[in-house]
Design a protein around this nucleic acid. Sequence first.
DNA 1: TAAAATAACGATAATCATTCTCATTGTACC
DNA 2: GGTACAATGAGAATGATTATCGTTATTTTA
Lengths: 144, 144
Amino acid sequence: MTVMLDDSCHLPLSTIRLTTKQKAVLTQLERLQEAVSAQQLYTELRQHGESLGLATVYRALELLKLRGLVQSRTTTDGEALYSPIQQDQHYLTCLQCGSSVPLGFCPLQEMENQLRRSQAFTIYYHTLEFFGVCKPCGQKVEKV
Amino acid sequence: MTVMLDDSCHLPLSTIRLTTKQKAVLTQLERLQEAVSAQQLYTELRQHGESLGLATVYRALELLKLRGLVQSRTTTDGEALYSPIQQDQHYLTCLQCGSSVPLGFCPLQEMENQLRRSQAFTIYYHTLEFFGVCKPCGQKVEKV
DNA sequence: TAAAATAACGATAATCATTCTCATTGTACC
DNA sequence: GGTACAATGAGAATGATTATCGTTATTTTA
């Protein structure tokens, strides 16, 4: 069975075909509020009774990224976190403890639109992240 | 032997002590124009006659990041690329072929300064990256 | 300066997210 | 129904990064 989506995204294709498993991955991702890793997604899908393999989750995420439906960012310890692309959510991340505080805004919409107009590149999304040291960690650093 | 640097950075400490090896890592990083992986850095340092271990390179980079002297971003295939922090350089990255085109500008200086003023977080640097599909890959995608 | 305490180092093993392999199953098209 | 092809699952392979641990350099203290 394949699921058809309407073309409300920035793809040149008029329709996007997704398999049931791929749709399950996307749906679960949309259900969750925060960005999650592929491993977490896999575990949650299994718990929800979905029967699929870990490799399939990775493959689905890869495909969804290429289709412009999913985006990812990488944590300080090298794990990729995925989220549906409409969430224009960015973070303030502590280099020491790795904690991330979500930013409440994004100043890049206009610039992204400008870049979109340049023909050389089709832009799906951007990542923006500020790195530094949070207050508690900063106090520890002074003592080092 | 330890090397002393003056406090021209945003650290609370008045001086930063670096060992010879740590300084070698930083110097090599400053010598190179583009962001490089820890492994590349290791190889280059060995070729330049420097005698150090891979683990030391990783440890040095970690420490330099915490000191606010070095920053990193992660490529699409999960490798961390390091660069000296003064380079305010961002990229346009193709999700399909992974190629990165450097952006010639950064619109975030003012916002970063504003965030710096908020006391809760000490900001060292930010990352900004646009993701999409480059022209050649875009033509391939249409055929998929 | 010498000895003790501490931090940095090197080599390599361990970890762990991600990707690859390949046999199997599902789907599209005739 | 049958053939071609894409998707899947299970587990092995990969490869960057991190941990371990014995050794060496540096700092501190007497």
